[in-house]
Simulated scan of single mutants.
Amino acid sequence: MAWVVLVLSGVLETVWAIALEKSAGFSRLVPTAIFGVALVLSMGGLGYALRTIPVGTGYAVWVGIGALGTAAVGMAVLGESTSPARIVCLLLVAAGIVGLKIFH
């Protein structure tokens, strides 16, 4: 259960990161509210997961999922570069996340 919560918390990290960008420096109400709710839920889920998952592994997986998700949304939706080098780097991050789970 902790791993499921950790993955969902990582996805919520992507949500709050994108909402933060869309909030335009906290000047837009809806994205700012989404940011706040997603941030609290993401941190709460991370805290819950760290009850049973070691902090180094849990935090690295949480950050990795958030980074992967945010970069993917940036490329797919926000027009950021999708160069082959960026794709390879994201695949390496994904491999690191899977490796941390496997060798937990």
Score class of each variant (00 low, 15 high):
2 A>V: 12
5 V>F: 01
6 L>P: 00
8 L>T: 03
10 G>H: 10
10 G>W: 06
10 G>R: 10
11 V>A: 13
12 L>E: 06
12 L>Y: 05
12 L>V: 01
12 L>W: 07
15 V>G: 08
15 V>E: 03
19 A>I: 08
19 A>D: 02
19 A>W: 08
20 L>M: 15
22 K>H: 12
24 A>E: 14
29 L>I: 15
32 T>R: 03
32 T>S: 15
34 I>R: 00
34 I>V: 15
34 I>K: 06
36 G>N: 09
41 L>C: 11
42 S>C: 09
43 M>G: 02
45 G>V: 04
45 G>S: 05
45 G>N: 01
46 L>R: 03
48 Y>R: 06
50 L>M: 13
50 L>A: 00
51 R>L: 12
52 T>P: 08
53 I>G: 01
53 I>H: 07
54 P>A: 13
55 V>P: 07
55 V>Q: 12
57 T>M: 14
59 Y>G: 06
60 A>Y: 06
61 V>S: 02
63 V>Y: 02
64 G>T: 11
65 I>V: 13
65 I>A: 07
66 G>I: 00
69 G>T: 03
70 T>Q: 09
70 T>G: 09
71 A>T: 11
71 A>E: 08
72 A>G: 03
72 A>C: 08
72 A>L: 14
73 V>A: 10
73 V>L: 07
73 V>T: 06
74 G>P: 00
74 G>L: 03
75 M>R: 05
75 M>G: 03
77 V>M: 13
77 V>K: 06
77 V>C: 09
78 L>T: 02
78 L>M: 15
78 L>G: 11
80 E>A: 10
80 E>R: 08
81 S>T: 15
82 T>L: 12
83 S>P: 05
84 P>M: 11
87 I>R: 00
87 I>Y: 00
89 C>P: 09
89 C>R: 14
93 V>P: 02
95 A>K: 09
96 G>K: 02
96 G>C: 06
98 V>F: 13
99 G>S: 12
101 K>T: 04
102 I>M: 15
103 F>R: 14
104 H>Y: 14
